[in-house]
Simulated assay, not measured.
Amino acid sequence: MLFQKSLLHLWIPNMFQFTGGIQTYSAFFLSALQSLYPNIDYHVFLKHDTFSSPNFPFLPDTKFHFAGTVHPKFKTIFFATKIAGYGLWQRPNLIISTHLNFTIAAYWLKRMANIPYWAVAHGVDAWNIDRPALKTALQNADKIISVSGYTRDRLLAEQNLDPTKVILLPNTFDASRFQITPKPEYLLKRYGLTTNNSIILTVARLDRSEQYKGYDQIIQALPEIRRYLPNVHYILGGKGSDRSRIMQLISQLDLQNHVTLAGFIPDNELGDHYNLCDVFAMPSKGEGFGIVYLEALACGKPTLAGSKDGAVDALCHGELGALVDPDNIAEIAQTLIKILQGTYPHSIMYQPEILRQKVKEIYGFDRFKQSLQEIMQTELVK
């Protein structure tokens, strides 16, 4: 049982120096916890970060422990030793890990010192787990928080877990950062486009290990889309090791004038890029959830996602956007054509303010904080 003067350990891969789904979720999770329970003593252990950011609204008494300066060869053992050592020394009332891999250390702390632990399951980190030590750690966790119903269902199907211990706390987003605005002139000029162009946008990490994001399928769908919409233009934002292969694919399909690889999009331009597009499309088949969908919806944009991963949750099983078979290029093409022509049979797609309001109601930070409070109430006595 946790009390307001309790000690809480949070184990997080990183939060300040890299922006990804787990990092963003971890930041919102800590922010919500500290807003709800400001009197708890927070110790936050970060494996890859080297410093905190003044832009992050954490409580001034928060204690951060960084392992990012350690040589990569020794970082894992150093971090494991650190979290285990502090756990044995401080005996926190609860450990929460925002990555499943850290639960192996938490399991041993529970065995040695009876410290309860929770973990957060995101996506690929929680699927197809076959490591015996990790399976044991998950089975002995006091709670597992899943960011999507899809990941929860897979965990329960693949692991021997008590379903009452696996609970849902979906991703959230900062609605104040993503507003509905006209297409930004500076981006139209940057990319040599006009308001007559039908613009498709994807924002993803272009890493060879993340080809499941579906940008290949959109590129392959473009020749068919161009038959109906000659002025269509695809902007693919992100950087990574897959860029050269993508450029070859674009060249093979003779799409050099119809695709822009925008590179890394800084946070202060992300909202403008959503507002630049006419449809946000990422027909992924490996997303644990996909915060980018929420951000695009908050900008009032029609949104397309794959029907075989956690994006089903983000789009509320089709209530908030179009779900397609991520392996079916013809279906992707036809759906994007209908969306861009304004004929897709889902009127909410063309009502930006309603789209924004719905995604805020379902996935806004206030809802996230309320849901977290409901989860925590069995552990906290105010």
Rank of each mutant, 00 (worst) to 15 (best):
L30N: 04
L294Y: 03
K213H: 02
H233S: 11
E361W: 06
N101D: 10
N160P: 09
A133V: 10
D254M: 06
K301G: 01
H122W: 01
M15T: 13
R245Y: 10
L138K: 05
G306P: 05
T303E: 06
H71A: 11
E295D: 05
M1D: 11
V279E: 00
H48T: 15
I83E: 05
K382N: 10
E361K: 15
K369G: 07
E224S: 11
I77H: 08
Y228F: 13
L201D: 14
A80F: 00
A204F: 06
L155D: 01
E379H: 12
K135H: 08
L30G: 02
P345L: 12
I362L: 15
P54Y: 04
G20H: 02
Q217M: 08
T172K: 01
D41Q: 14
K110S: 09
G263D: 08
P182C: 08
I77E: 13
D254E: 12
I115T: 05
D49H: 13
A314L: 03
R190W: 01
A204L: 10
T151N: 06
G21V: 00
A126Y: 00
L206N: 04
P266L: 10
A133C: 10
T378L: 04
H99M: 14
N197G: 05
Q341F: 04
V259T: 02
L8I: 12
H258V: 05
L236P: 07
D61W: 03
G271N: 12
P283A: 03
R190C: 02
I95S: 04
K189W: 00
V292P: 07
L380T: 12
G342S: 11
Q90M: 08
G342P: 09
I167V: 15
S31A: 09
M349P: 06
L10K: 08
Q220P: 02
